[in-house]
Design a binder for these strands. Structure first.
Lengths: 208, 208
DNA sequence: GCGCTTCTGTGATAAATGTTACTGTAGATT
DNA sequence: AATCTACAGTAACATTTATCACAGAAGCGC
């Protein structure tokens, strides 16, 4: 069953909602799709109405460092920021759970800021929350060691999917933390010994 | 000799400039002043007209991780973002070179967004550039080792002060990179052997 | 079942970074 | 000059993280 835009963005005024329906283009993408690559020019602001997206920062050596998740009711802050001057994307966006999005042409972004108070507030709040999220990422890598970062990673994953099972291989986790598989395996083993997780093949159960 | 607001913010319309003069409060602070602490509520948006400010992320253990510099013609993105809802600051701001600032009461922020196109563009550009700067910080700590980060730190310092001498002790540098003095000393010695710097007491000369 | 691939576990070792301890030196204070 | 203090250099060692090597287990296709 499909939720309406109104349910997903409850703070939008009804005028704004119909303008979005009019000017936006609804699109679906399967899990695994790369929605945006580092260096690409951005032509749309993306509103997520269903599914999940992960935002990565790419290293020169091909690393894919996980920054944060995007979920229904949220928007890609980068696509908003870059939109105005049609700048290049500084990040990579990957679909991790089949998504539906509304693509908003870049010229609408500025226009609506003036015309719709609820759009303005949404944009500011998007900036604020994403900025804070990135600051938290900085905290983690600047001040914490790998075991703490791994615990944080697992917690965030289960928060995002709303369940206590993480269905990822150690290699995938290692890539997103920019470390090696062996390190992840070892740290997970220690967590299992401490009773924090139960390890299965391609699955980690969080116990507390 | 004092530059006028118009010279420092050349893109602001003359109406906006006079509104700023009218509603803002010009204030000076000496080097060393903490302008904003983590957890404080933000009551003003800060425009820098003279001097330099460093923005830090504070760790729980008392670490002060340097994020970026603010210079004349720039504004504190955090103070803009948090302003709307009078949120708590997520960062610490320290004056490193005597500054003059314009304090803009938070309610002006929203008002001017609607009334002054040049303010709107300035705010969006501020968000964009600060976001990019933080992403670069993430790059550095996620993908680079301490020697590369130290070189980047020194380069950024000399860019900010416009000279090739860094007048800081090894301890101060270590604090801002969240490492220990010994590590900084060792790496600097190696850089000296590679001919990249010349080390004096309380001063590092960049040679290329 | 057999062969193949992917995933996981683990030891050995290397490299980077953090910590402790101690020394010497430059500059300031008296 | 004698003393004091902050700063810098460095050796020795501990810890964390990365890399290499290999082996066993789980799932898959045939």
């Amino acid at each position: 069953m499909q939720h309406s835009l109104k349910d997903i963005f409850p703070n939008f005024s009804s005028e704004l909602l119909s303008t979005i329906e009019e000017n936006g283009s609804a699109q679906d993408f399967e899990a695994g799709t790369i929605l945006m690559r580092t260096g690409q020019y951005i032509k749309n602001t993306v509103l997520i109405t269903k599914g999940k997206i992960k935002i990565y920062r790419e290293g020169e050596d091909g690393g894919e460092f996980l920054m944060y998740y995007l979920q229904p009711g949220q928007a890609c802050a980068i696509s908003m920021i870059c939109t105005t001057k049609s700048e290049k994307s500084q990040i990579m966006a990957k679909v991790v759970e089949d998504v539906s999005v509304m693509m908003i042409p870049l010229q609408m972004m500025d226009k609506w800021m003036m015309e719709h108070r609820s759009w303005y507030e949404f944009v500011i709040e998007t900036y604020r929350s994403r900025f804070e999220e990135v600051l938290e990422v900085v905290d983690n890598i600047a001040f914490r060691s790998m075991d703490e970062r791994l615990e944080f990673y697992l917690k965030r994953h289960s928060d995002a999917c709303g369940c206590s099972e993480v269905n990822l291989s150690h290699q995938e986790i290692a890539t997103e933390l920019n470390t090696s598989r062996e390190v992840v395996s070892r740290l997970l083993k220690k967590m299992e010994q401490r009773g924090l997780v139960k390890l299965n093949r391609n699955q980690i159960e969080l116990l507390r």
